[in-house]
Simulated scan of single mutants.
Amino acid sequence: MTFVLVVDDDPAMRRTLSINLRTRDYDVETAADGRSALQIVEERMPDVVLLDLGLPDLDGVSVLRRLRGSSDVPVIVVSARTEPDDKVEALDLGADDFVTKPFSIEELLARIRVTTRRTAVPEPALVVRSGTVRLDVGEYRAWRADVEVHLTPLEWRIVETLARRRPRLVRQSDLLHAVWGPGFERQTNYLRVHLAAIRRKLEDDPSRPGLFITEPGIGYRFVADDPA
């Protein structure tokens, strides 16, 4: 599922984009200012950023410059500015596309599809070791103390989501959305039940987990000693 970060100080625009993107099965998070956007990117890398230039704290150009200083995340500037110089500056700084407001939602969706298709790369193979545990995420195989452990397909989706974002925090709603899809963001009891089963299979002491860490009321993170 493609994760889109919408950065715009206009509440109506954030709401319109969120509704339209979510109805088309995009995972969406919004930010009303530049600093919030940069914080979200640090915690959870989006697949594409829709960036307004007229923000109340850091302007969009400053946000774009900071993004390009630390990542290659695709950025589509969505702005009411129509001067050619604004467009040229944004593209020179590394924006992947520039859409002028007002725009057709279908056009914006097409630009998102093109941008994410152009920048998409296959998920890399991932093998992680920590203590007696070894996870081959690409092959969906797990061992504890050299004994192979069976995880269900749903348990693997949870493990893979956390392992690929390690050691960053994954919010409960994001994990539910990634594993079960839209409409399950409030079913936090699902996570408690399945994480308990995963811990029984992989943790040395499930009552004191060292791999699958709970941040109470917020989310979960996967902590491993080192990749293989």
Score class of each variant (00 low, 15 high):
Asp205Cys: 06
Glu185Trp: 11
Arg199Ser: 01
Arg164Met: 02
Pro206Met: 15
His194Tyr: 12
Glu185Phe: 09
Pro206His: 10
Val179Phe: 04
Gly181Leu: 06
Arg186Gln: 14
Leu191Ser: 01
Leu176Pro: 00
Arg171Cys: 01
Leu202Lys: 01
Glu203Ser: 11
Thr188Met: 06
Val170Ser: 02
Pro206Ala: 08
Ala197Asp: 09
Arg200His: 14
Ser173Trp: 01
Arg166Cys: 06
Val193Trp: 05
Arg171Phe: 11
Trp180Cys: 02
Ala196Gln: 13
Leu191His: 03
His177Thr: 10
Ala197Lys: 12
Arg200Phe: 05
Tyr190Met: 15
Arg186Asn: 09
Gln187Cys: 04
Gln172Thr: 01
Gly183Cys: 05
His177Ser: 07
Arg166Ser: 15
Gln172Ser: 03
Arg168His: 13
Lys201Val: 07
Arg199Phe: 07
Pro182Val: 11
Trp180Ile: 08
Pro182Lys: 12
Trp180Tyr: 14
Leu176Gln: 00
Gly181Tyr: 06
Pro182Ser: 12
Ala178Gly: 02
Arg164Val: 03
Ile198Asn: 06
Arg165Met: 12
Tyr190Asp: 08
Phe184Ser: 05
Tyr190Phe: 12
Pro182Asp: 09
Arg199Asn: 05
Leu169Trp: 03
Trp180Asp: 01
Gly181Ala: 10
Leu191Met: 11
Phe184Ala: 00
Ser207Val: 15
Arg168Val: 06
Arg186Met: 12
Arg171Trp: 11
Val170Lys: 04
Arg171Asn: 09
Phe184Ile: 05
Pro167His: 12
Arg166Met: 12
Arg199Asp: 02
Gln187Gly: 05
Ala178Ser: 08
Gly181Gln: 09
Arg165Ser: 14
Arg200Ser: 10
Phe184Lys: 04
Asp205Asn: 09
Arg164Thr: 03
